[in-house]
């Protein structure tokens, strides 16, 4: 569900909470809203499910104004997760996850199967937690249930307001990975509010930086790090952003198609692409264009998987003094290649 903000403003009394927002949220991608507290990021989120009504402007979901959709119906189609989680204390884990499906009058069997499926998705043991009440769960477990609840009716859009903000760093990392995994499988449009730049870089396909109710910069994560528009963005990113991001950005964000596939090395003499991947029914190795130019064909066996960090890819490149690496999925599917010059920022 792509979302479009057109000149959207929200005033509380005389103060603008958000001002003239004009941006588009990509379909099936994670968009992160970041900024200091009071910058309007949470307001922006709540404008979408109309917990806050905008003062002026237009918000389009799938090209349709959100005013044209019944408020209640709209919300049932949008998953909503907040920092305090807001699990219903009087409901068991099962009943909490089943809230929206029940509102939508799903048949009992379908609800049960869905709950089991969702608990699996967030890596919770169905038998262990299903009849527990929120107070019996740990913070991390509660937030997993919160995410499962938001996904219950299979919404296309997920609004997440600092969902992992109150969780300890180790569990936060785990939950971020859980979310990335879910996203890989389900491909939702996710709008994610955070004040943690690390989290933003790790999760975001795109990042919008907010300040005083306005968007300072809205760009793909990599572009934002490469070309911060002003001092404010640089400060938000931190001094070491250009190095630090390598550690928690995944290889999959840098995949390129600059390669050819062959099943034998015998027909190699000159190639157009940077990299020639040798593939029979599994990955056999690869040959670099630069090697061929130098006149000696060398078959190399290294590769990375899409969910490895860019830093790991870089390490392998340094070790062998090469400038690109094949990206191979664990099931032996060729994803593409990752290039040194794309990773290293000016």
């Amino acid at each position: 569900m792509p979302i479009k903000f057109i000149n959207v403003s929200k005033k509380f009394k005389d103060v603008y909470a958000v001002k003239n927002l004009n941006f588009e949220i990509d379909d099936k991608k994670i968009t992160v809203l970041i900024g200091p507290s009071g910058c309007g990021k949470t307001t922006t989120l709540k404008l979408i499910n109309r917990l806050i009504e905008r003062t002026s402007g237009e918000i389009l979901i799938n090209g349709l104004s959100i005013d044209k959709i019944d408020k209640i119906e709209l919300r049932r189609k949008i998953g909503y997760v907040i920092q305090e989680i807001g699990l219903f204390p009087h409901y068991t884990v099962f009943d909490n996850i089943a809230v929206v499906p029940k509102l939508l009058n799903w048949p009992k069997n379908k609800i049960k199967n869905r709950v089991i499926e969702l608990l699996n998705l967030v890596n919770l043991d169905f038998k262990e937690v299903i009849n527990k009440y929120p107070y019996e769960l740990s913070g991390g477990q509660r937030q997993r249930v919160g995410v499962a609840r938001a996904l219950a009716a299979d919404p296309e859009l997920l609004l997440m307001d600092e969902p992992f903000g109150a969780i300890d760093p180790i569990n936060r990392e785990i939950l971020q990975d859980v979310l990335l995994n879910i996203q890989k499988k389900l491909k939702k449009t996710i709008l994610f509010v955070t004040h943690d730049i690390r989290e933003a870089i790790k999760l975001g396909d795109k990042i919008a930086v907010f300040k005083d109710g306005e968007i300072q910069q809205y760009d793909s994560t990599i572009n934002l790090i490469k070309n911060p528009k002003n001092k404010f963005i640089e400060n938000i990113l931190g001094i070491n952003a250009k190095l630090n991001y390598l550690e928690f950005v995944k290889v999959e964000k840098f995949i390129e198609k600059d390669f050819l596939v062959t099943n034998s090395i015998s027909n190699i003499n000159k190639i157009e692409k940077e990299c020639l991947i040798i593939f029979t029914n599994k990955f056999e190795g690869f040959v670099l264009k630069t090697d061929i130019k130098k006149g000696h064909i060398k078959i190399r066996n290294d590769y990375v998987t899409p969910d490895q960090s860019v830093l790991e890819a870089l390490n392998i490149m340094f070790k062998h003094n090469i400038h690109c690496l094949p990206v191979i999925e664990k099931n032996n599917e060729i994803k593409g290649i990752i290039k040194y010059e794309k990773i290293i920022l000016k």
Binding site: N49, I72, E73, L74, I78, Y80, E84, F88, V99
Partner: peptide, 27 residues
């Protein structure tokens, strides 16, 4: 009742009546 719980209920698409009977009165 914690206000965030009511807000989440709203955010999930409960009507005022549903919030009263399924959340407020029960809690």
């Amino acid at each position: 009742i914690d206000k965030t719980i009511i807000e989440v209920a709203e955010g999930m698409g409960m009507s005022k009546k549903e919030i009263l009977f399924k959340v407020e009165l029960l809690i």
